[in-house]
């Protein structure tokens, strides 16, 4: 195990990664878990939506409800992964507090688990976040089991409700262990140990939803970490407002490429579309900056996400490269 000190740029211990669907939050969560594992540390990457997104990303078999090593860093760091299943979490929880044994299995047979998590969705979220809390605060032989826990959380549209566990369950459970469980989770989520990072693309809807989610979480007293811009493109044709056919014609000729009217027009159209896009991206970048949170940009991956690409993203998140 490495040192107990937190990462300078990522001081939290529980990193909740959200973002609109399609922004690549699973990829970013995985890269962050990898970045924080550097220096011989151990991190846990958790998913809670039953999508098996982590397994797909790493090209492994579906993850069981069990913490498994999924990646290592060259300097002895290790990322473990866990897919939390609400049913299993409830059984584990009941077993921990009530030593149910066979009765727990009977409950499952009766459909009690399905029922309980269906009728009280807040309960389901308390169980999921409760498991995340347990892993975040677990210690083994007096040392923290994980240097950091990274949660691949529900998307921006559902994140406020998901993290606002106390309100949901307080309406239902006024006393008892569920109430204390949810209060414990709420305290962790509202402490400096937790940061919610919002992943976005430089596109209108993800940016809008990021702003909405940050507003919602702030109102709930949950701390926002960074805004992570995924899929950022290199600033080609910087400082250009227009690209003329004449200059392209000269350039293509100089490069020894066909410089006929059709080729020039096609290249110009592509360059102009790029500029239009860039202008929009620039204004969205400004909107994001106005949210007042630290921003990190991750490059668009030319060849999809593989192990090397994840390392590139982890480098960027770790403040290198």
């Amino acid at each position: 195990m490495g040192s107990e000190e937190q990462h300078e740029q990522w001081p939290a211990r529980l990193h909740v990664v959200t973002g609109k669907g399609g922004t690549g939050k699973t990829t970013v969560a995985a890269a962050l878990a990898l970045a924080l594992a550097r220096g011989g540390r151990r991190t846990l990457l958790v998913e809670v939506e039953g999508r098996q997104g982590i397994a797909q990303l790493f090209g492994t078999d579906p993850l069981p409800y069990e913490e498994r090593r999924i990646a290592t860093t060259p300097d002895g760091g290790e990322v473990r992964a866990l897919a939390v299943d609400p049913e299993e979490a409830l059984l584990e929880y009941l077993d921990m507090f009530y030593r149910l044994g066979a009765a727990g299995r009977a409950l499952r047979k009766l459909g009690a688990i399905d029922f309980a998590t269906t009728i009280a969705p807040g309960l389901r979220d308390v169980l999921l976040t409760g498991k995340v809390k347990e892993a975040t605060t677990r210690s083994v032989n007096g040392r923290r089991a994980y240097h950091a826990v990274v949660l691949d959380a529900p998307p921006t549209g559902r994140i406020g409700r998901f993290l606002n566990v106390t309100t949901e369950t307080a309406r239902l459970a006024k006393v008892g262990p569920i109430k204390s469980q949810s209060e414990g989770v709420a305290a962790l989520l509202r402490s400096p140990m937790t940061a919610v990072h919002v992943v976005t693309l430089l596109e209108e809807m993800p940016v809008q939803e990021s702003a909405d989610a940050i507003g919602e979480l702030t109102a709930l007293g949950i701390g926002i970490g960074k805004v992570i811009v995924n899929g950022a493109r290199p600033p080609l044709l910087a400082s250009r407002g227009r690209v003329t056919k004449q200059e392209l014609k000269r350039g293509l000729a100089a490069a020894g490429l066909p410089a006929d009217a059709g080729s020039v027009a096609a290249l110009q159209a592509e360059a102009q579309a790029h500029l239009t896009r860039r202008e929009l991206e620039e204004s969205l970048r400004t909107e994001l900056a106005e949210l007042g949170r630290p921003m990190i940009e991750l490059p668009q991956l030319a060849d999809g996400v593989d192990a090397a690409a994840l390392r590139t993203l982890a480098d960027r998140l770790a403040g290198r490269g």
């Binding site: 044709l237 392209l248 100089a254 592509e270």
Partner: peptide
Amino acid sequence: AADALDAAGDQAVTADALRVH
């Protein structure tokens, strides 16, 4: 072609347009 243009040094716009392409 974009790299060759950059090496020659005077067609930066076309070089970038080719990278966009």
